[in-house]
Design a protein around this nucleic acid. Structure first.
Lengths: 351, 351
DNA sequence: TGTTAGCACTCTTTGTCTCTGAGTGCTAAT
DNA sequence: ATTAGCACTCAGAGACAAAGAGTGCTAACA
C-alpha cells in the first residue's frame, strides 16, 4: 500500500475524529502535500479498497470499520504523557482508598477526561481461596451468609428460613463450614460439593438446605464478573450514537461482558462492526487490564464513538491501568515488609 | 365552581391523559352534554381561572398544574381493582424473597405496568438498634467493618490501615464494640461518641482511629435513605419529557430524595411545577409508604409524566404498598408464634 | 506517466412559500 | 343561557428554489 495513501487515510481519520463531519479533499491538503485532485483520486481508490466511504455522492469521506482498524493498528501515533499530565491524572485517583474505590476513581476520571462511558470489570479469579464463611442470624428466621475471599472481596446474602435455627444447629453448621470450606478454592464450590455437605448435616439437613442453596449462589456470584458502568450520560448525549440503541443498551448492560473477558491480556480495541451482535453502532470499546499480585484483577475500559481521540485516550487508559497495578502491588510489598518486621518483634499471625 | 365546568375540566384531563394531544371542544362533547360553543365558552373561563392553557391560539386546551391538582384531589375516580387484577399483581411479587427483593419485585412490576420509572426508598429508622458490629481482617492490613441493625439491614465497609492489628488489638476492639455498641440506637453513633471510644482505646488509639472513622461513616450510611430507581428507560423514551432534562436527572438522582421523605405518611402526589427545583418538567411523582412492624420502612413510588393514568396507577401503587406491608407483618407474626413454640421446648435465645 | 486545473454534476441543507385543517373567539339568533 | 355560524389564527406538511460543499472526469502539463 502506497505511503501517500496511508497518509491520506490517517489524515481523514484524524480530521474526522476532530470535526465529526465527512472530510473533503481540500481539508486533507493541509496534511498531505498534493493537490485536491490527486487526493480525490487516492480517496476514490481507498474507497474501492474498503477503508473509506461516502455518506452520499457529494459529501466527503468517512472511515469504514476497516479504515479505523488500520488506523489504530498501524497508523495512529500515541501521545506521550508529559510529567505534568501524569501528575494531573494522579491527582484524580483516590490513591489511598480501598481497591474498589481506587479503581472507581480512575473510571470516574476517565468519564470526565474523555466524555465517554467508562467500565470497571473486576473478577475474582476462580482459584481464589475462601478465607471466611459465616452464617449470622439477623432477625426472626433471617440469616446472612457472609463470604470473604483471599483477594479481599466480601459479599453477603440474606436468607429467610422456614424455621429458626437453634444455637446448636448454627454452631454445628458454622463450624462445619469453617473446617471444610475455609481455604478451599472458590471454584470448588460445586453442586456436588453442596450435596456432600447436605448429607453431612445429618439430622439438620432439611432445615439447612435453603442456606446451602444460597451458599452455592453466593459462591457463584463471587466468581462472576462484576461490571460497573459509569458516565452513561456521555453515551446519551453523544451525537454519533442512535439514542434508541443507547437506551436499549443501558437497559441490558450484560451485553458488554464479552468485551471484558478475563482472557484478554493487553490493550484491547473492538469496534461494533455491522455483523456484530453488540447493539451500539458506531461504537468502540477499549480496555486495558490491571493486576494485583501478578494476576489480572480486572479491566478498565472505555465505551465511546468510533471517532474517539485514540491518540490521547489510549495513553490515559493505559496510564491508569498501570498506576492501579503499581499501587496495588506497592500495598502488597509494603505489607510484606511490615509483616516481616512484625514477626521479628512478636509472633502474631492473625489471618 | 360550576359543576359543568368541573365536568369539562375532568373530561379535558381524562382525554389528554389518553391522547397526549391538546383537547378541543368537539372532543369534550362526547363527555358533557352541551354544544361545542358552550364548551368553548366554559373552557375560556377555565383558562382564565388558571386550570387550562393553550399551547397556541388555534389549538385545543391542556391542563395546567392547577388543573391536574384539582383533578387528582377531587375530580378523579379511582378504579377498583378486581380480584383477578389483584391476583395478577400478586403473581408479579416475589412473595417469599427477602424484604429487599420483595420490594424490588414490586418496583419492577410497576415499571412494567405503568411505563414509568419506579422508586424504592427504604430507610432504616434512626431508633433502630445496632444488633451486631464486627471487625473482620480480610487481607494484609485490610479490614471489614460489618454492621447489622435490628431491622435486618446489613452493610459493610472496607478499610485499609497503616499497620496490621495484632490479635490482642483486634480482640480488644471487637469486644469493646460488642459490649458498648450492640443494642444501642444507631442514631446514637455521633462524633462525640466515637471520640469517647477513641479515648477508651488507650494505647491502641492511634492504630484504631481510621477504623473508628469508618465505623462512624458506616453508621451514618445505615440511617441514610437508600433510594433505588428502576425503569429509567421509560423516562428516556417518554415523549412528554425533555430528554436533556431526563439525562441530567439520571446523572444526579439525589434530587428525588426530598419526594420520598420519611415524614410523608400517606399517598403523596407531587407535580414538578414551574417554581420547583425538580429538574424534570411535566413530571409527577406519586408515592405510598410501606410498613414493617407498624413502622414506616420505606416508600414505593412512581415517576412519570403529568398525564399519567392516575385512576389506574394509584390503585396499583397502593395495592403493592399494602401487600408488602401485609407480607412483612405476616412474617413477623409467623415468627412470633414460632418463637413462642420454640421457648416451650428449649431455651435457645440466639439473637 | 503521474499530477493538477477546470468544470459539470450530484446531493444535502436551508429557507420561503403555500395550502390544509383543526380549533378558536365572537356575533347574532333562538 | 345556549347554540349555530363564520371569520380568523396558527402549526405542520409539502413543494420548490437557491446555496454550497464535494465529487468524478477530462484535458493539459511537467
Amino acid at each position: 500500500m502506497d505511503s501517500r495513501k496511508l497518509k491520506i487515510l490517517q489524515a481523514v481519520v484524524d480530521e474526522y475524529i476532530v470535526t465529526g463531519e465527512p472530510v473533503g479533499s481540500k481539508a486533507i491538503m493541509a496534511h498531505v502535500k498534493a493537490s485536491s485532485a490527486t487526493i480525490r483520486n487516492e480517496m476514490a481508490e481507498l474507497e474501492k479498497q474498503g477503508y473509506l466511504e461516502q455518506p452520499h455522492t457529494s459529501a466527503g469521506r468517512i472511515p469504514t470499520y476497516n479504515g479505523y482498524r488500520l488506523y489504530v493498528d498501524t497508523l495512529m501515533e500515541r501521545d506521550q504523557l508529559t510529567d505534568e499530565e501524569k501528575r494531573a491524572l494522579d491527582s484524580m485517583l483516590d490513591e489511598n482508598a480501598s481497591e474498589e474505590e481506587l479503581v472507581n476513581s480512575a473510571s470516574l476520571a476517565l468519564t470526565q477526561l474523555t466524555q465517554c462511558a467508562s467500565v470497571v470489570a473486576s473478577s475474582t479469579p476462580k482459584f481464589s481461596l475462601i478465607s471466611k464463611v459465616e452464617v449470622i442470624p439477623t432477625g426472626k428466621r433471617m440469616y446472612v451468609i457472609l463470604m470473604i475471599t483471599s483477594n479481599g472481596k466480601i459479599k453477603n446474602k440474606v436468607c429467610r428460613l422456614e424455621f429458626d435455627l437453634t444455637h446448636e444447629q448454627l454452631e454445628f453448621f458454622d463450624k462445619y463450614l469453617a473446617e471444610n470450606l475455609q481455604g478451599m478454592p472458590i471454584d470448588d464450590v460445586s453442586e456436588e460439593m453442596i450435596e456432600k455437605i447436605r448429607t453431612a448435616m445429618g439430622a439438620y439437613m432439611v432445615t439447612l438446605t435453603p442456606l446451602l442453596g444460597e451458599l452455592f449462589n453466593l459462591a457463584k456470584e463471587m466468581t462472576a464478573q462484576d461490571i460497573k458502568l459509569q458516565g452513561e450520560k456521555n453515551l446519551l448525549t453523544c451525537k454519533d450514537f442512535d439514542q434508541g440503541e443507547i437506551i436499549d443498551f443501558l437497559d441490558n448492560q450484560k451485553e458488554i461482558e464479552k468485551f471484558f473477558n478475563d482472557s484478554f491480556s493487553d490493550l484491547q480495541i473492538s469496534f461494533s462492526s455491522e455483523g456484530d451482535s453488540f447493539a451500539i453502532h458506531n461504537s468502540s470499546i477499549i480496555s486495558a487490564p490491571f493486576k494485583k499480585g501478578g494476576v489480572q484483577a480486572g479491566r478498565l475500559g472505555l465505551i465511546g464513538p468510533m471517532r474517539i481521540n485514540y491518540s490521547k485516550f489510549i495513553p490515559y487508559l493505559e496510564y491508569f491501568s498501570q498506576r492501579i497495578t503499581t499501587l496495588l502491588s506497592e500495598r502488597d510489598d509494603d505489607t510484606a515488609r511490615l509483616e516481616i518486621e512484625d514477626k521479628e518483634t512478636e509472633e502474631g499471625g492473625n489471618s
